[in-house]
């Protein structure tokens, strides 16, 4: 059974690229348009990994990470955040909230796959 990865991003183009890359890599993908949407879907869908943008309306990435970690089903799953190079402090904040790792934007599909492999095995 394929592993399920959620991508939470308010940018449709980034979601599209992430989804496309992950599906190519043999994963199933659940898309969420912002933190709130993501958290809602997480409570009803079991996912093996979460990839989230940090800047999103309604509920931002940090909030989503904290919310996800509070869910029993997401307590130990890898959570990777998408950051831009200027957000080193955000990186720390994200880690403190329970993020497993990060991917710096812009990234290439190969880099995304490398990180997925690193945290998901």
């Amino acid at each position: 059974m394929a592993k399920v990865i959620m991508t939470a991003d308010d940018s449709a183009s980034v979601r599209q690229m992430v989804t496309f890359t992950l599906k190519q890599g043999g994963y199933d993908v659940v898309e969420a348009v912002d933190g709130k949407d993501a958290l809602q879907k997480l409570s009803s869908t079991k996912v093996d990994m979460l990839i989230t943008d940090l800047n999103m309306p309604n509920l931002d990435g940090i909030g989503l990470i904290k919310g996800a970690r509070a869910l029993p089903s997401c307590k130990f799953i890898p959570i990777v955040m998408l950051t831009t190079e200027s957000q080193d402090s955000k990186k720390q904040e994200g880690k403190a909230a329970g993020a497993t790792g990060w991917i710096v934007k812009p990234f290439k599909p190969e880099q995304l796959m490398a990180v997925v492999k690193k945290v998901l095995g």
Binding site: N55, M56, P106
Partner: peptide, 18 residues
């Protein structure tokens, strides 16, 4: 202000991706 920032941020982040 947050909306303006996010719009800029998304254009920047996705723009460099593609």
């Amino acid at each position: 202000i947050g909306r303006v920032f996010r719009a800029m941020h998304t254009i920047k982040g996705s723009g460099s991706m593609f």
